[in-house]
């Protein structure tokens, strides 16, 4: 059950190319699970930026002087995230959360692989921590275009059983993409579940590789959202239901975490002809 609150900015710190905002969020932190996200309204009450921006929950602390705090990671991409990264201590933000369906954690102590593209890593720290608390082995593959686009490498080194880094320009770790090394990582650890968060193309490839190596995949998608709470129907993508029928489902309330083998990755951005409610092609 999500809540809306006026959060105070407690701290803003730089981490590579990103800003980490620490916010008061009493009442929200207890509900937050790995994979959940929050939305933040931009630019104040009179803002011309009407749409809220969505952020994975990076860290939560349920106790402390502020009665619960959470952290989000902001990468400057547009004027909204620029405004947000310029917030300072004691500023206030309107936040809603926790939103979406979180990652599903295995009941048994099975080895897991976490794959993070760019700042998709933000949502993976809580997940790694909780998986290890359950006694799961956690191998992490983090990738980005270059070293500065990686987020939280040192911290992830501590949170994981093993960390493999890839960069496309080879500035650190192995040159290449996460998908180049993923297969062998799954094989070596005999992983049963692969968790992934990153751009759509990466998720598509991760889901395919996980399938080939007989691992379940849980992918957290980054779709453009207007409301984040399920009323606007903007963030849909084609997903196959348990009944075998493809529906255009909302990634904000039915996701953002989907089973990798359920999403029709190559059809994202289209309405597949066999989707529920797809336009009937008239015979001429």
């Amino acid at each position: 059950m999500p809540i809306q609150l006026r959060a105070e900015v407690l701290d803003v710190r730089k981490s590579g190319a990103y800003s980490v905002l620490s916010l008061t969020a009493a009442g929200m932190t207890e509900l937050a699970r790995p994979g959940h996200f929050v939305t933040v309204s931009m630019g104040g009450e009179e803002s011309s930026m009407l749409l809220r921006r969505a952020f994975a929950i990076y860290q939560v602390k349920s106790r402390g002087v502020y009665g619960g705090t959470l952290e989000i990671v902001v990468g400057v991409e547009g004027k909204g995230s620029k405004w947000l990264s310029e917030r300072r201590r004691h500023d206030h933000l309107d936040i809603v959360g926790p939103l979406g369906r979180p990652f599903i954690l295995p009941k048994e102590r099975v080895p897991c692989v976490l794959v993070a593209g760019g700042y998709g890593a933000a949502g993976m720290f809580m997940l790694a921590e909780q998986l290890r608390d359950r006694g799961c082995r956690v191998d992490v593959v983090m990738g980005a275009s270059c070293e500065s686009k990686l987020f939280g490498v040192l911290e992830m080194k501590r949170a994981s059983s093993k960390l493999i880094i890839t960069t496309e320009d080879g500035s650190t770790g192995e040159r290449g993409r996460v998908t180049d090394v993923l297969g062998s990582v799954i094989d070596k650890s005999e992983a049963a579940v692969v968790y992934a968060c990153g751009p759509m193309g990466m998720l598509s490839a991760v889901a395919a590789i996980a399938g080939e190596h007989r691992a379940y995949s849980q992918c957290s998608v980054e779709e453009a959202m207007a409301c984040g709470i399920g009323v606007c129907m903007t963030c849909v993508l084609p997903v196959i239901g348990p009944d075998g029928v493809t529906r255009m489902v909302r990634s904000c309330v039915e996701g953002p975490v989907f089973r990798g083998d359920r999403v029709r990755w190559s059809d994202v951005g289209t309405i597949p002809a066999d989707a529920f409610g797809a336009p009937v092609v008239e015979e001429s």
């Binding site: 930026m49 009407l50 453009a224 129907m233 903007t234 993508l237 951005g269 409610g277």
Partner: peptide, 28 residues
């Protein structure tokens, strides 16, 4: 009838507004 609506992207933020082309997605 049930309706899948239009393909994505369905939305663009504009100054003090937004543009949408959801295409009446609904369950029928």
């Amino acid at each position: 009838q049930p309706r899948a609506g239009r393909p994505t992207p369905r939305m663009a933020e504009t100054p003090s507004g937004m543009l949408n082309s959801i295409g009446l997605q609904g369950p029928g």
